[in-house]
Each structure stands twice: as C-alpha cells, then as structure tokens.
Amino acid sequence: MSSARHTRLLIIGSGPAGYTAAVYGARAMLEPILIQGIQPGGQLTITTEVENWPGDTEVQGPDLMLRMEAHAKATGAEIIADHISALDLSRRPFTAAGDSGTTYTADAVVLATGAQAKWLGLPSEEKFKGFGVSACATCDGFFYRGQEVVVIGGGNSAVEEALFLTNFAAKVTLVHRRDELRAERILQDRLFRNPKIETIWFHTLDEVLGGDNPPGVTGVRLRDLRDGSLREIPCSGVFVAIGHAPASELVADQLETHHGGYVVTKPDSTATAIPGVFAAGDITDHVFRQAVTSAGMGCMAALEAERFLAAEDAAAPAAPDVAAVGAG
C-alpha cells in the first residue's frame, strides 16, 4: 500500500555518517527520518574486528553499527527499513520514492549512501572476506604484523595500500595484470624503492587459498595472462585494491560528481550545489574512507542542515494574525 511521509530532515543511508547525522538531527529537534537501504549498517557490517574506532580497543563491526542504530533511535530519530529507488532534488520539498511504496518528502536531505569496494567476483574471494581477504589496509593491516600479504591492483589505491602494509607485513607482493602501473609516478617511485615490496607483472588472481577450521588465508593462486600458467604464493592476507564505487546513482544526473562518481561538496562543508542537500561519508570522500571520518561528516551534515532550515524559517513570511484580521 502506498503512503506519504514528510520530514524536515531525510537521511538516506545507515552507515556511520547516516547514523551520526540522525543523532545530531534528532538532538536539534528536527525529528529526522533515516532510510536504512539494502545494507543496514553499511560496509562495517561485513567487517570483523575494528581496532581504530575511538573509545574501543576492539569492537566487532556489526556490533558497532547496532550500537549506532540504537543511539540514533534513543535520541528520537525514526529508523525505517526501506530502500530509496528514486530521488527528485529539482524542487523543495525534495521527494524520495521507497521500494515499500512510501513517498518521502523532506525540507532537507543528507545523502549518506556510502561506497562499496570493487571486488573481482571470485567465489574464494567471497568465502574469505573478513578472514584474510580485505579491501582496506588501513582497517586491517595491523593484523598482519610480521606476515606476508598480497595486494591486487595497479592504481593509486593499490600502491598506497602496498606501501602502508610495509609498516606491518614482512613482505608485500603487488600483483598487476599489466607491465606498468597506473599510479602516480611519485607513488611508483616509493614502491619500487621499498625493499619489502615485490611486484609480479602480467598476472591476475585466480583463487584465494585457505583453510576452514579456523577459516583463514594460506596463499593465492595466480594466473599468467601471457601463457595461462598458474603459480601459487604463500601469504596470510589478500588486499583487493581495484578501486571503490560510490553509491551515487540516485543523484548522478542531479549533482556534480568527480573521481568516478563521488559527490562534490563545497570546501570545508557537506553542502552540495543544491541548497538543502548535504552529502556525508564515503559518497563524497574519495580520500580517507574511514568510519571515524564518515561519522564526523555526518555530524557536520546534520549541523549544516539545522542551520539551513533555521535560516529558511527566519526568512519565511510571518503567518497572518487571524484574530486581528477578524477584528478589523
């Protein structure tokens, strides 16, 4: 059954940015509605140990997101399990269509739909996600102190991941399908000069090798693109670094994007080119992509939305005094 809901602040997305925006929006008495999307909690729900969230020496990703959701609810935000399939930002109030049949209208919108790491699509890759296969060296590199790891990719992300991992790993092997990298020259120079890094050219990942009890990676099987031959390399971790895809499909034709689809915001702000529309977290952050920075942007977005709505209220013409008009 179709229905309609209106809110002063609509938050689309339920990762650290979305839930933090909901907390601050509720505290500002905006009575926000947050639409969780198809993956409530975002990327952290498929992460195991998180050791870089301030205040927690170690916390499970899914547990952290459940706590954030509970916090948002406790402050008064309404959390709805729905998925926004269409969003019209051409006029206010903004209109969002949910898969549930509900139409949401809002005076301000926070986009917090995040981004997803690109994967190779191998069954073995999927099997060991969170158990030796990762797409974030900053998140998981610490677990591989003194061990050997493999990085797949050839762009800036791959080279940066490989260089970062040398802070922990005994050896880093970078695997690339061509014989030259796409990364910036200064990054390539650092990579080639690092004694901990070995580069394997003209190869792709054919299979992640590992055990089931306990689950964990023991190596990789690589395929040589020149002759199809296979070779195995022992390792404890595999980092797939072939880029990220921001979930900006809803606004790709309405807001300016860059760096492959990340929403552009004003300097030192979450405000987009459309007044009343704000973007926070991985949908706009192509640099850091961390839970803590996403949460910070969620805070910024809610505060900026509050100020925007307050300014709109102050500029609105005062309602006529019905009693005074009748007396005249």
Rank of each mutant, 00 (worst) to 15 (best):
residue 168 F to D: 11
residue 207 E to Q: 14
residue 101 G to T: 00
residue 274 I to S: 07
residue 310 A to Y: 00
residue 115 A to R: 09
residue 259 H to D: 10
residue 45 T to S: 10
residue 119 W to N: 08
residue 253 D to F: 02
residue 60 Q to N: 14
residue 290 Q to C: 11
residue 219 G to S: 06
residue 139 C to S: 11
residue 15 G to C: 13
residue 317 P to E: 07
residue 6 H to N: 12
residue 278 F to D: 01
residue 293 T to Q: 07
residue 21 A to N: 02
residue 91 R to C: 09
residue 227 D to M: 08
residue 2 S to L: 09
residue 298 G to P: 08
residue 103 T to D: 02
residue 189 D to Q: 10
residue 268 D to W: 15
residue 151 V to P: 00
residue 313 D to T: 10
residue 113 T to C: 09
residue 44 L to R: 05
residue 280 A to L: 06
residue 26 A to I: 06
residue 229 S to M: 09
residue 195 P to Q: 07
residue 11 I to V: 09
residue 230 L to A: 03
residue 289 R to H: 01
residue 79 I to A: 12
residue 49 E to T: 11
residue 138 T to Y: 08
residue 132 G to P: 03
residue 144 Y to I: 03
residue 6 H to F: 09
residue 252 A to D: 04
residue 156 N to A: 01
residue 232 E to N: 05
residue 320 P to L: 15
residue 134 S to L: 02
residue 241 A to V: 06
residue 11 I to G: 01
residue 217 V to I: 04
residue 9 L to M: 10
residue 2 S to T: 14
residue 77 A to R: 10
residue 70 A to G: 13
residue 18 G to V: 06
residue 232 E to Y: 01
residue 273 A to Y: 01
residue 117 A to P: 02
residue 30 L to K: 09
residue 153 G to K: 12
residue 206 D to Q: 06
residue 93 P to L: 12
residue 307 R to E: 13
residue 90 S to R: 15
residue 240 V to D: 08
residue 199 T to H: 04
